[in-house]
């Protein structure tokens, strides 16, 4: 009978984590370039050892366990801002950013700025990479035009091309905060289509998250009910079986 309570407990602790994931999506509903996550569950069967190895034969018990948080890489909607250094990717792929330790991180949040030396940087001040490394603009460059294929043109002619990379399997990317991802073996994006003066909105849909939220709270309630019923059952068992028949 305790097993049922433990199964219920496994369910409840997972639901709490699921709520955390939903809360994080909701908190980032206005974060440009944010990709929503979903928590997937897996059945965890006990005993792990072969069931027939024991006498009397154990019955399998299914617990629930977290399997993975799957990031949804569908594109968010496009918001036009009119800011020259706001870039939105309309195709698959990521902008490359140089981290302080020299490695690269990848992001779809294209709200870039210039720093005091005219270098193209993220809001954190990390250099944004072109195909030939970081790029610096000076007063002579005048207006910076970034074409749909990522080519950067100024008054001084063509200055380079935005580095846009893609991955064999985007599911292997690790979120590291600041709307950035870390990944291995980037490939040049097959097709680049970017929009200057626009930003990609978060791909979190309020209604989907609220639906998930309702599911989670109700599932939590239901599981609590089971725990409560089990408790009553046990209480009854104790009082009935423990009654002394004279």
């Amino acid at each position: 009978m305790e097993n049922a309570q433990l199964v219920a407990l496994s369910r409840q602790s997972i639901l709490r984590n699921h709520l955390d994931v939903i809360a994080n999506n909701m908190a980032n509903i206005n974060t440009s370039g944010y990709k929503s996550q979903n928590l997937h569950f897996a059945e965890y069967v006990m005993p792990v050892a072969d069931g027939t190895a024991f006498e009397p034969q154990d019955r399998d018990i299914s617990y629930v366990d977290m399997f993975t948080t799957r990031t949804d890489f569908t594109h968010g909607s496009l918001k036009m801002t009119g800011n020259d250094f706001d870039l939105a990717l309309n195709s698959d792929g990521f902008f490359a950013v140089q981290l302080p330790d020299g490695t690269e991180a990848y992001t779809r949040a294209g709200s870039f700025h210039l720093d005091n030396t005219g270098q193209l940087v993220t809001a954190e001040g990390l250099p944004v990479l072109t195909e030939t490394g970081p790029i610096t603009f000076s007063v002579e460059d005048g207006n910076v035009q970034i074409a749909g294929d990522g080519t950067i043109a100024t008054n001084l002619g063509i200055r380079g091309r935005m580095k846009v990379v893609d991955f064999e399997d985007v599911r292997t990317l690790e979120k590291i905060g600041d709307t950035m991802f870390r990944g291995e073996d980037p490939l040049p994006a097959a097709q680049v289509s970017l929009v200057q003066g626009g930003l990609e909105n978060s791909n979190v849909y309020g209604i989907t998250e609220v639906t998930h939220l309702i599911e989670v709270t109700r599932a939590y309630d239901a599981t609590s009910k089971i725990v409560k019923d089990l408790d009553e059952l046990r209480q009854q068992a104790i009082s009935t079986l423990g009654r002394f028949q004279a």
Binding site: N24, A27, D169
Partner: peptide, 11 residues
């Protein structure tokens, strides 16, 4: 593990 479990902490 192809995709891990990552729980964010907000915005």
């Amino acid at each position: 593990v192809p995709t891990g479990i990552q729980i964010g902490s907000g915005v």
